[in-house]
Write a protein that binds this DNA or RNA. Structure first.
Length: 601
RNA sequence: GCCUACAUAGCUCAGUCGGUAGAGCACUCCCUUGGUAAGGGAGAGGUCAUGGGUUCAAAUCCCAUUGUAGGCUCCA
């Protein structure tokens, strides 16, 4: 959230409404405790510790009380207090007392983020409710529009974001300056839901889930599989061209492998449990790197062989908490477009840059522009990492150097590293504005160390290679989810599961269209003939709903001329066109992976 | 895993006060052979997520379970 937003009137409105809501809730539950209540992207929330669970029915009453408070035109009065005064003021508000301690130590703000120095402690009071708060607020409740906010939902939220601490009840609200803006926001939400990959995935027949198979385990239907397979073939070809070699590894391995890699002790909670076979333990693989490492280790390597780039669409299984599973964006079994580059220290930077270029090329092709690049570094206070700090230092520098060299616009996030090394992630938002990590590049000095990887150097001495873990898509599942939402299901021609739908004007034109379809199939265009009983108009409507790029309609005129009448998904009617001409144009669009439907004239 | 909701035909959804279930689309059949976003008619389709309970009677009320959704935590 930008500086601008924090200084805006909208920010003040939302912040103030959070206080008004807290007052309303405390009117209902005088013995309730309040925690924190900040503005957020489209509104605000406030966390409470209350004597009973809230239900959605309570929101109406809270809203009513809020409107009553607003109509009182109460000023938001700021005053500055000492830490001790604040403690007296909030003597029976334990969460506030904890915040005051934090403020006094100068350590942390209400979100637990470090702040430089001890800030001035201030409170804001409207009507009967005084809250520990840094502000800013509107001048008085009269500036709040009683018809431009709405309480949206109730959720559990752990105090200080720590699942070992009490779970509070959070009420989310949205707030705007005018009622019209509120309506527009609610409307936008509805429209976003129509673009949701889960909805489109069902509608377009791309994938499904079966409770019998298990939650978080997607089943790709034929159309979804075509889409996925097209993406895989594309990336394979790209990778072949820049020196990757394909490998294939099994879905399970001995637990011993993950003890060696260091995964097992650190991530036991998020792995599927091991299975006992004879007197050995196996588990579904949570990642592909140890397998690829074993391939590297299977033969002696010379510096002349490096870099070795091993690529695999590797399916991994992770036990994600049930409450965290979502559509295709968070699943328990997924396929990474994984590869591991084993390089000499001298090669590292060039290799890293080459990977970033590959990722950029893919994003360009898809027309992805709205993503953030994040460099995830180690949290020095956490125990969850393997490897010596010097190696981390080196790896982090290598990433930042390379990112600077490519001119990437990135931000650094402490504590977002993988357990074996720092990484560069590409982060996208879904239609509901949730962020997901897609592509990732990770520099790793640690696994080569743990597995004792070597190559023979020019000096006839063994040396340790450095690994780069990378996945431009991240996972096929998540990438396709974002892709569906990005295109709203209307995929560019090269990705569309059905590229051409042939529609007869009358039944007698079906044989002709079958011939055309055969020609299209011959050059690799995915086409089908709608020979159903409906009229042409209904068939067009159906094809339109399926977001098929090309509709070829044929009646007597077309048959006579060896032509088809071309209708585009955009609604454009191009009229009659010789079959050969359509084939040439469609092929050109498909092969160039263009996002247009027709070549420029 | 935790909090709050939701679950009725393949899909989208009605179903009042507790009285044994309905529409549109899709599907099947018949008529229609139609030139750029739904031609007409008929039919079939439901253990109201699952399992308990209350009741003369449960889609409806209660409990549990499963799944889904929005959050929280987590995310190699």
């Amino acid at each position: 959230m930008s500086e601008r937003y924090e200084e805006s009137q909208l920010y003040r409105i939302r912040h103030s409404l959070a206080h008004v809501m807290a007052q309303a809730v405390l009117e209902i539950f005088p013995e309730g405790r309040v925690a924190i209540g900040p503005p957020i992207e489209d509104g605000f929330y406030y966390d409470f510790d209350l004597p009973r669970q809230l239900h959605e029915a309570d929101l109406a009453e809270i809203e009513t009380r809020m409107r009553r408070i607003i109509s009182g035109n109460f000023p938001f009065a700021r005053r500055e207090v000492s830490a001790d005064e604040a403690r007296q003021l909030f003597a029976n508000q334990p969460y506030k007392l904890e915040l005051i301690d934090g403020l006094e130590r100068g350590g942390y703000d209400e979100n637990g983020n470090k702040i430089a120095e001890a800030p001035v402690i201030s409170t804001y009071k409207q009507d009967s409710f005084e809250d520990l708060c840094r502000g800013p607020h509107v001048a008085h409740t009269g500036e709040l529009n009683p018809n431009a906010f709405k309480l949206m939902s109730i959720a559990g939220a752990y105090w200080r974001g720590d699942s070992n601490r009490p779970q509070l009840q959070r009420i989310y609200g949205t707030a705007w300056q005018s009622g019209a803006e509120l309506e527009e926001y609610l409307h936008r939400l509805e429209e976003a839901k129509a673009r949701d990959h889960r909805k489109l995935g069902e509608q377009l027949g791309l994938f499904t889930f079966s409770p019998l198979v298990g939650k978080g385990l997607p089943l790709w239907k034929p159309k979804g599989a075509i889409l996925r397979d097209t993406l895989e073939r594309f990336l394979r070809a790209e990778q072949m061209r820049v020196g990757y070699q394909p490998v294939v590894t099994p879905h399970i391995a001995k637990v011993e492998l993950y003890r060696m890699s260091g995964h097992y002790p650190y991530y036991a909670d998020s792995q599927f449990p091991p299975m006992q076979v004879d007197d050995e333990e196996f588990m579904p693989k949570p990642m592909n790197c140890p397998h690829h490492i074993e391939i590297y280790r299977s033969e002696p390597r010379s510096y002349r062989d490096l870099p070795v780039r091993l690529a695999e669409f590797g399916t991994v299984y992770r036990y994600e908490q049930s409450g965290e599973l979502t559509g295709l964006t968070r699943v328990r079994g997924f396929t990474q477009d994984d590869a591991h580059v084993f390089a000499t220290p001298e090669q590292l930077e060039d290799e890293f840059i080459a990977v970033v270029h590959l990722i950029q090329r893919i994003f360009d092709l898809m027309g992805f522009q709205e993503f953030r690049a994040r460099i995830g570094t180690r949290d020095p206070n956490s125990e969850k990492y393997v490897g010596a700090p010097e190696l981390w230092e080196k790896a982090t520098h290598a990433i930042i150097n390379a990112a600077d060299k490519v001119g990437l616009d990135y931000f650094v996030a402490e504590g977002e590293a993988a357990f074996y090394g720092p990484k560069l992630d590409f982060i996208f938002r879904d239609v509901l504005k949730r962020e997901w990590q897609l592509g990732t590049v990770q520099v790793d000095y640690n696994l080569p160390e743990r597995f004792g990887l070597e190559y023979m150097g020019e000096d006839n001495q063994p040396h340790r290679p450095i690994m780069i873990h990378r996945a431009p898509f991240g996972s096929m599942e998540r990438f396709v989810a974002i892709l569906i939402e990005h295109f709203g299901g209307a995929f560019p021609v090269w990705l569309a599961p059905v590229q051409v739908r042939l529609i007869p004007v009358a039944d007698r034109h079906v044989p002709y269209l079958r011939e055309v379809a055969a020609k299209l199939a011959e050059i690799g265009l995915r086409a089908d003939v709608d020979d159903g009983k409906e009229r042409m108009n209904a068939k067009i409507r159906t094809a339109q709903g399926e977001k098929i790029p090309y509709m070829l309609i044929a009646g007597d005129r077309d048959v006579e001329n060896g032509a088809v009448s071309v209708r585009l998904r955009s609604g454009e009617d191009l009229g009659g066109m010789p079959v050969a001409e359509f084939i040439r144009k469609a092929q050109q669009i498909a092969e160039s992976k263009s996002q247009q439907l027709m070549p420029n004239a």
